[in-house]
């Protein structure tokens, strides 16, 4: 009994934080979604049942936002992982000074979203000189250009996450016994064949993990959008998190923002379930 009392005392601090700042606000979203925020502050909120859910989730803005968010994940996740994997394989060889290259390839972990976004915002700034000098200028400029803005934000994101992706793939590679690769080499497998038939299959758990968690991160990306495009031009980069943010901050519309937040959760949950299935299979596989 005393042991139980001590145990509850030990988990209590965490539970208080989780209850107040994760579970309560999460559950309250469903409640908030039932109420329409009045057009003028001070008027009472109006309960509208599920109407607001239906309106928001079928609205053109929402569907566009989901499309942009998915597109952003599609641009960033596979490319980011492929780049990290490629660099990890290249840096996984016994060469003098390879440590320096490893450090360089993992260096972008030291950048935050804000640091990366401000750097790329400057590189893509049409007045600063690099792009016009290279003749790589679009009209309107890249970040204001409907065809290029999302791609530019995606490239910024891939670069910022490259270090992370590299570290993850490298540690996965280090777990592969050298003998396996040497055996394949003795059997006459070329570099590409070793990559395709030995490294990729053995690394598949790590790659699956990176795909699923990377997609979850991609769905939560916010800072790069806020700093580079503010959802524009004409909502071409209006990802879900930015949509929630503007609904909350500019329109002060709690009800609508809550419905959007639930939608974000639903998508993330779907991805997490996929992740758990894959991890389960992986544990089984490893044993």
């Amino acid at each position: 009994m005393r042991e139980a009392g001590l145990a509850y005392a030990l988990v209590l601090p965490s539970l208080v934080v989780f209850g107040a700042f994760i579970f309560y606000p999460f559950v309250r979203n469903f409640y908030l979604g039932f109420f329409r925020t009045p057009p003028f502050p001070g008027l009472p909120k109006k309960g509208v049942g599920l109407t607001q859910y239906r309106e928001v989730l079928t609205s053109h803005d929402f569907l566009n936002s989901v499309k942009v968010t998915v597109l952003f994940a599609v641009y960033t996740v596979p490319t980011g992982i492929a780049a990290g994997l490629g660099l990890a394989v290249l840096a996984h060889q016994k060469l003098r000074g390879i440590g320096i290259y490893r450090t360089i390839f993992s260096s972008t972990v030291a950048t935050s979203v804000a640091v990366a976004s401000v750097i790329f915002g400057t590189l893509l700034n049409p007045n600063v000189g690099l792009l016009p000098w290279l003749g790589l200028q679009t009209n309107p400029s890249i970040l204001q250009n409907p065809s290029w803005a999302l791609l530019a934000v995606a490239i910024t994101t891939i670069w910022q996450n490259l270090g992370l992706s590299f570290i993850l793939m490298s540690s996965g590679l280090q777990a592969i016994p050298d003998e396996l690769l040497e055996a394949a080499q003795i059997d006459g497998a070329g570099a590409w064949s070793r990559f395709r038939n030995v490294i990729v299959p053995l690394l598949s758990p790590t790659i699956f993990f990176a795909v699923v968690v990377g997609s979850i991160f991609a769905f939560q990306s916010f800072g790069q959008i806020e700093l580079l495009t503010q959802g524009g031009p004409t909502k071409h980069t209006n990802v879900l998190t930015y949509f929630i943010y503007t609904t909350l901050q500019q329109q002060q519309d709690d009800g609508k923002a809550a419905v959007l937040a639930i939608a974000l959760f639903g998508i993330t949950l779907l991805l997490t379930l996929v992740q758990m299935r894959l991890l389960e299979r992986r544990v089984f596989y490893a044993r």
Partner: peptide, 11 residues
């Protein structure tokens, strides 16, 4: 499983 972005409204 709850992304922080989902909780900002009430927080």
């Amino acid at each position: 499983m709850v992304p922080f972005e989902v909780t900002i409204i009430t927080n």
